[in-house]
């Protein structure tokens, strides 16, 4: 090579096309996908995770309840605002009949998912309170971890566009792409915090905060737009509409509740009481 040149005179001597290693790799990745990424255990092992919490709440709250009188679904503001013990006392019903299964970063889609998965039991609810907020109706082109776990292929195609849609379709086929956070979390959980479990507090609420994603939690539309930029499409309440349709089919009265910044529990319990009676 004369003088410096980015072109090399040393050429790699590769003899022909040998795809055998690639084929073995493909087979191994298939094994990982079938026996790891598609196993529910991977997703729910860490209770302190967006999907683990849904399973934990179903097991801890919904499953043991015989009769659901009031069901509350929403995000952490709704969880913090409506205390089952207080609401049950105000309504004069048993505390175990009031369930608040709102969760951090809970969206209308998550509420719909919980309702769909437990419809047999929840369809007998006397009143459903759904937390609604402006920002939770913002349709962004960023699928949440829960959406990646629970959504069908049709939902993936219908509610996302462009790169996000392509990624969702690809990850529907190759589940490892969806499960990467869960696999990573599983390792972390085993190595660093093996005993972190979700529990129910004395007031009937599930004690859990998504500290892992704390930096993304924000309630204001302005900040959501700043974070998501042009990935914010428009206000679109498709999940909420679908949930309301199902409730209408099941004949459940629904209260749409927007938690104010203060005195939230009083307002909610007052509203719930009037509707309940």
């Amino acid at each position: 090579m004369s003088r410096s040149s980015i072109f090399s005179s040393e050429t790699l001597q590769l003899s022909g096309f040998r795809p055998y290693g690639t084929i073995v790799a493909f087979e191994l990745l298939l094994v990982v996908d079938i026996f790891l990424a598609r196993r529910e255990m991977i997703w729910v092992f860490a209770q302190n995770s967006p999907i683990g919490i849904v399973h934990a709440m179903e097991g801890l709250v919904i499953k043991p309840t015989e009769q659901v009188s009031v069901l509350v679904l929403g995000n952490s503001r709704v969880r913090d605002a409506i205390i089952p013990a207080v609401l049950a006392e105000e309504l004069g019903i048993s505390r175990t009949n009031v369930l608040n299964i709102s969760m951090t970063r809970g969206t209308p889609y998550d509420s719909l998912t919980i309702y769909r998965r437990n419809r047999e039991k929840l369809a007998k609810t006397s009143l459903l309170i759904i937390g609604v907020e402006d920002f939770s109706q913002l349709r962004t082109n960023i699928p949440s971890e829960r959406f990646r776990y629970f959504s069908s292929l049709a939902e993936r195609c219908e509610h996302f566009y462009g790169e996000a849609r392509a990624s969702l379709i690809a990850s529907y086929c190759w589940r490892t792409l969806d499960a990467y956070r869960s696999i990573r979390r599983l390792g972390k959980q085993i190595l660093f915090r093996p005993n972190q479990r979700v529990s129910i507090g004395s007031d009937g609420r599930v004690i859990w905060r998504d500290n892992e994603n704390a930096q993304y939690i924000d309630n204001s539309q302005e900040i959501a737009e700043r974070i998501y930029g042009d990935r914010v499409l428009k206000y679109d309440s498709w999940a909420l509409r679908e949930l309301l349709d199902r409730c209408a089919e099941d004949g459940i009265p629904v209260l749409l509740y927007r938690p104010p910044l203060s005195t939230a529990s009083g307002t909610a319990s007052g509203a719930a009481r009037s509707r309940h009676h």
């Binding site: 001597q13 040998r18 084929i23 073995v24 790799a25 087979e27 990745l29 696999i183």
Partner: peptide, 26 residues
Amino acid sequence: QTIMLRWPVLLRGLAYAALILILIVF
């Protein structure tokens, strides 16, 4: 520099799969 291409097929496949998984998971 291309010694990896001379590894046994199984080892090579394992290495490729591991690298792809590392890229995805991390």
